[in-house]
């Protein structure tokens, strides 16, 4: 439903994405992990059509929405307006349906987006993307600057959307643990190249990935226990 072949994206003299091939199937949850500066953000921007690739092809079937890195809300507009603008290309501008999915937003409808906390803002960003009634959602850095509890809450929401509406997800995450737990499949991007890919379980077992992304030796169980329960169930839901 979303695929890129041999994608190359240049930003000035930097080749940020260098020959990437990836795909997300209908109803699938896929993670994209990698170190800072790997080119993840550039890759999703290209997939969202916001950056023109130098070469390669992108194929999108179905409606696609995008939660950009750093949220990028319309800070001087109300939450309600932010949400309804998410439907710019869609038909239904009424944010009511989002309040059913993300009930926390209903009470904030009249607040100015700039006055919300980071977690609330991220919720609005996700809600705004959902207003486009996407079949596939790309989320760049779900957990950026958020408390673990908020992150697992958001992850729960995404998992249930996936489960109930068959939403496909491409999730970019610094927190590889969370990404692997939530998604059934993952890509590892380094220096603009895909260096590893496969099912989350496979990748979690790979020595290389464990050392670089899961902090092997430094008690992964502790990390797990912090976000553990909810994301675990999310994954099980996802693969069901």
């Amino acid at each position: 439903m979303l695929s890129a072949t041999d994608l190359v994206v240049r930003l000035g003299s930097v080749t940020a994405v260098d020959g990437v091939t990836l795909s997300v199937e209908r109803g699938e949850m896929v993670a994209l992990v990698g170190p800072n500066g790997a080119g993840k953000t550039t890759l999703v921007k290209a997939l969202a059509g916001l950056v023109r690739p130098a070469s390669g092809t992108i194929a999108v079937e179905g409606r696609l929405a995008y939660v950009p890195e750093g949220r990028h809300l319309f800070y001087d507009l109300s939450v309600e307006d932010n949400l309804s603008l998410g439907a710019w290309r869609g038909r239904d501008r009424n944010p009511k349906r989002i309040y059913e999915v993300l009930p926390g937003l209903a009470g904030l409808a009249r607040r100015r987006a700039g006055t919300l906390s980071g977690g609330q803002q991220q919720m609005v960003a996700v809600g705004r993307a959902l207003m486009a009634d996407p079949e596939i959602l790309m989320v760049d850095e779900l957990s950026l600057g958020l408390a673990p509890i908020v992150v697992s809450d958001l992850a729960d929401h995404l998992a249930s959307l996936h489960q109930r509406h068959g939403l496909a997800l491409l999730l970019i995450e610094q927190n590889a643990r969370l990404a692997f737990d939530l998604c059934s499949r993952a890509y590892v991007l380094e220096n603009g190249h895909i260096v590893a890919s496969g099912s989350s379980a496979e990748l979690e077992r790979s020595e290389q990935v464990r050392r670089a992304y899961l902090g092997v030796g430094s008690t992964p169980s502790k990390v797990r226990s912090r976000e553990g329960d909810s994301s675990e169930s999310a994954r099980r839901d996802g693969s069901a």
Partner: peptide, 22 residues
């Protein structure tokens, strides 16, 4: 108006405006 809010959105955050397809 929706169109007017779309214009305000461009003023508020132009990248975000592009993100939602304005």
């Amino acid at each position: 108006t929706y169109l007017g809010k779309g214009m305000t959105a461009c003023a508020s955050n132009r990248f975000a405006a592009e993100v939602v397809g304005i």
